[in-house]
Nucleic acid binder design. Structure first.
Lengths: 106, 106
DNA sequence: GCAATATGCAACCTTTTTGTTGCGCATTAC
DNA sequence: GTAATGCGCAACAAAAAGGTTGCATATTGC
């Protein structure tokens, strides 16, 4: 995976609206549904969703007249792995960083 | 940490040049030093470094006439934690995602 | 002191991103 | 069949990002 591809994913994550959308995807979201409560138009939301889709963080599925977007967790894991790679380069020592994430929620 | 703050960090990571810079920081980098090999001017590199600095991913230190940029791994860990949070919301089950990152490099 | 090195600052340009409005098409409800 | 709902597309505008050039300032090496 090239650095350009990685950048696409992080850039997709680099917007508060999109982070919000990602967090609410679990509710099972059609475009209109995901638009409620946001201070922008449906079309703007559509664009954000397309950005996330191009980054392969979500996937679109047609269901009759509506489109459901589902999460792609494997991509998120991949992104975490990339960060882990950089972190390892930084502190040199293997395994140290990982154990931090480990400890985080316990 | 607000979603806007998180977005700033991911947006900073969302550029191939900046990912490249981050990967080479370990070598201990002054601006001029980090600029060699890149197809852009020193001033452009300076801007990228400032973006990373504002995201608290790196830190600037004056050393005489040059500026050294050092990595801030804790911020990277934090970003990984945020991704982990989203992933957990997605697959509901606790600990599953983490074990994936775990397995990644072994 | 003087030249070379390392940065900083500001103005300017181009491209991308983000958002809007208006309209058209497909699907569903009645 | 008709109306309402859910989306897609295209044109447009405003704002932000990325990059350049030119010049000024501070340190270092001789």
């Amino acid at each position: 995976m090239s650095k350009a591809d990685r950048a696409v994913v992080f850039a997709a994550l680099g917007d508060p609206v999109r982070l919000n959308l990602l967090a609410r995807l679990g509710d099972g979201g059609s475009i209109t549904q995901l638009s409620v409560g946001l201070p922008i138009t449906r079309q703007a939301v559509t664009r954000h969703l397309h950005v996330l889709e191009r980054a392969k963080l979500i996937e679109a599925r047609r269901c009759g007249r509506e489109v459901r977007f589902v999460a792609r967790p494997e991509r998120l894991r991949q992104a975490m792995g990339w960060l882990d790679d950089v972190a390892r380069q930084w502190d040199g020592t293997l395994g140290r960083l990982k154990s931090h994430v480990e400890r985080k929620k316990r």
